[in-house]
């Protein structure tokens, strides 16, 4: 009983690490631009497919991981600059921007479906024999993923807090027009944020497919709810919040799965979001709709 609980909790931490990597990227982007980017999952899939192709081309899995992140960053910049800017220039409302990103995700997902011939591709790399710590059984790559999430949290938090760019980013997120009149090039800040968050998104796509050992066109789409839930739960723009929310959701999901409710494990993860919505709607409403679009 207890050992089962511990084993499930350990799996939960691994899942949480994957959610956390993606949710940190998501919340960074969301906190700055205020666009609820529903094409985030599709960019994850792009990162996953890039790593798969790199693997087919004979590159090492670590390089594939890096390339996946780079592909995510490039795709995010292309979408942000090429597509979302178009709408921002037409004074599209925040809410309609979300709809635009949804259309984008349809185009990317089903574009990938037509290119990938709607097949599921196996991706088994970096699989090694598991390490046993009492009841907890983890593979080295799972430990690596957890470590990666922690490193990203520390590095990005530190960068936000101590570097000039981090200060500029926080200033832009709070009040873009004031930041602009203080001489901050908000356009550049947004571009750099797109890059970082896209990189994290692509990276999350790769670690996710390493963990599930397969990739197909809907990989990111099915993972997106967890990311959004973690970002909303953790408070928009808060990296630490996103990580804490990811840990809670990851552990709940895996514990429910471990105790026989596999079909309902994800539901349990989301039940937390629902409970928070019911008990404390104010904490999620995030100060109304008067936030402005920053692009």
């Amino acid at each position: 009983m207890l050992s089962q609980l511990l084993a499930s909790a350990a799996d939960g931490i691994v899942l949480a690490a994957i959610i956390a990597v993606a949710a940190m990227g998501f919340t960074l982007q969301f906190g700055l631009t205020n666009v609820l980017n529903l094409s985030f999952g599709s960019v994850m899939t792009i990162g996953g497919f890039t790593a798969y192709l790199a693997n087919v081309a004979g590159l090492s899995a670590w390089l594939g991981m890096l390339l996946g992140g780079v592909a995510g960053g490039l795709a995010t910049i292309a979408l942000g600059r090429g597509v979302l800017r178009l709408y921002a220039r037409r004074r599209t409302q925040l809410f309609e921007m979300m709809m635009v990103t949804l259309g984008l995700s349809l185009v990317i997902d089903y574009g990938l479906q037509s290119i990938s011939q709607n097949a599921i591709y196996g991706y088994t790399v970096l699989q090694a024999s598991p390490v046993r710590l009492g009841p907890i059984v983890l593979t080295p790559i799972q430990l690596f993923i957890v470590l990666l999430a922690i490193v990203i949290l520390v590095v990005v938090e530190a960068a936000l807090k101590f570097t000039k760019l981090g200060k500029a980013l926080r200033a832009t997120a709070v009040e873009p027009s004031l930041a602009r009149s203080c001489g901050i090039q908000t356009g550049r800040v947004v571009l750099i944020t797109w890059t970082i968050s896209g990189f994290l998104c692509g990276l999350a796509g790769v670690v996710y497919i390493i963990s599930t050992q397969s990739v197909d066109y809907s990989t990111g789409e099915l993972f997106l709810p967890l990311i959004i839930a973690a970002a909303i739960l953790g408070g928009v723009g808060s990296l630490r919040g996103a990580v804490v929310a990811a840990v809670v959701m990851g552990i709940v999901t895996e514990v429910v799965a471990g105790f026989g409710g596999a079909a309902y494990s994800t539901v349990a993860g989301f039940a937390i979001l629902v409970v928070v919505l019911l008990l404390r709607p104010g904490s999620v409403s995030g100060g109304a709709e008067d936030r402005q679009l920053v692009l």
């Binding site: 809410f95 959004i228 919505l277 019911l278 409403s285 709709e289």
Partner: peptide, 11 residues
């Protein structure tokens, strides 16, 4: 419940 419209749509 009363919340941001984009959150509601996402939920």
């Amino acid at each position: 419940r009363r919340m941001r419209r984009d959150y509601q749509a996402a939920v």
